Simulated assay, not measured.
Amino acid sequence: MNSPILHFISPPIPYFVDCGHATYTAGDVHINRNCIGVFDLIVVLKGILPIGEDDTTWELREGEILILRPDGYHYGSAPCTGDTKIIWIHFQTFGSWKECLSMDECLDNQAELIESHKQKAYLNHADVCSIFIPKTMKITGKAMEVLDMFFEQEHEPQSMRNWKRQASFQLFLQHLDRDLASPSDATAIQLAEKIELFIRHNYTSGITNSMLQKELNYHPNYLAKSMLKVYGMTPMAYLQNYRLEQSKRLLLQTSWSVARIAEEVGFHHVSHYSSCFSKKEGLSPSGFRRKFIRER
């Protein structure tokens, strides 16, 4: 797909803010706006919408989606030539995000974006993942069904409508995220998710590349390639990172010794654990604990 990609780190999942319909007749132009502070997702239901963001312009046709950035200049690039109908959804995120030119660029910058996210989203020990949303694409039938359901909720009482719309919007994003993947990407994603799940369930034991090969029946090189593509790190690097993240939880939620925590999360030597932790976090496990827990 020849489209830029919006790369979000979650949680928190991008959340719905507002939505509506708009109709244009021949000669009408989309309104000009600058830095509106929310993402503006547009779906054309009928006609053609000429629209621009900064120095790029599009002619959106029926069934096409465009996501405009919260920090860009949006404008009608030309008058509509006929009756045009659109739906728009405003959404935002508290987490880190970046617009990239390709999936390769997204993955190359994934580790850096995750580290930025953990500071911006106030997450010190939560598992995070990437959401990849194409900036522009042709909407699929399944995604359109979710949007139809989304707008049908306008007739719900406000208290129920807000809950249901958030859930529907997240389901819609999930469709966009999955529809982006090529067949080869989809295979890598499925395999990487199996590796990730196996590591999560067995991280306290002595996982090796040979064990993963036996469990998943793929050569370690292909397993590593899939994990690098999806998570930006090899299975063994992911294992170490996951163990360190779990140790943060124990540092904050228990009074266990550093040695016990190291053993609980799968490190055989407390010195190795402390060295890995310090290299990743810039402070020792004890220093991390003191930073967030004040003794009475």
Rank of each mutant, 00 (worst) to 15 (best):
R243L: 02
T81S: 14
T204Q: 14
F288L: 05
D104T: 14
C19R: 13
V43E: 03
T187H: 06
C80W: 08
V17W: 08
H201R: 15
G232E: 05
T136E: 01
T57R: 09
D40S: 09
H155K: 14
W58S: 08
Y203V: 05
S102A: 06
E281M: 11
M144F: 15
S116D: 09
L41F: 10
M233L: 06
W256T: 07
I65Y: 03
T25D: 13
T56R: 08
F292T: 03
D104F: 06
G63S: 04
L66H: 00
F288K: 00
Y203T: 02
H268V: 09
P134F: 04
E196Q: 14
S247E: 02
E99M: 15
A26T: 12
I195C: 03
R294S: 14
L173S: 05
G27L: 08
N32Y: 12
M236Y: 00
P134C: 06
E115Y: 07
R33C: 07
C19G: 11
K135L: 10
S226H: 06
E145G: 14
Y222P: 02
I31F: 11
E193V: 00
L113V: 09
F151M: 09
M160L: 15
G72W: 02
G52W: 00
F94E: 14
E281R: 03
W97M: 14
V17G: 01
L107T: 15
S184I: 14
E145P: 09
Y15H: 09
Y122N: 12
E59C: 06
R178P: 01
Y75S: 05
R69Q: 04
S3T: 15
L216Y: 01
E64Y: 04
D18Y: 09
N124P: 03
I65G: 01
R165P: 05
K164R: 15
I87N: 13
C80E: 02
E295C: 13
S286Q: 15
L107K: 14
K85T: 08
N124W: 12
Q246T: 01
S182K: 10
C106R: 09
I87M: 13
I131H: 02
Q253N: 12
L239K: 07
P235M: 04
K248L: 03
H117Y: 04
G72N: 08
F292Y: 15
G287T: 09
F288Q: 07
R200S: 10
S130D: 08
V38F: 09
I65A: 03
L41P: 07
Y273E: 01
M137W: 00
G141C: 04
A186D: 10
F198Q: 00
L66C: 00
R165C: 05
V146F: 10
T23G: 00
E99Y: 05
M137I: 03
E105N: 10
A126K: 11
I42Y: 07
K135A: 02
A262G: 06
Y24A: 05
G232H: 09
I133F: 04
S257V: 07
Q153R: 14
W256R: 11
Y15E: 00
M227N: 03
V270Y: 07
A78S: 13
T25Y: 13
E112G: 01
I293R: 12
T57N: 01
M236S: 10
R260S: 10
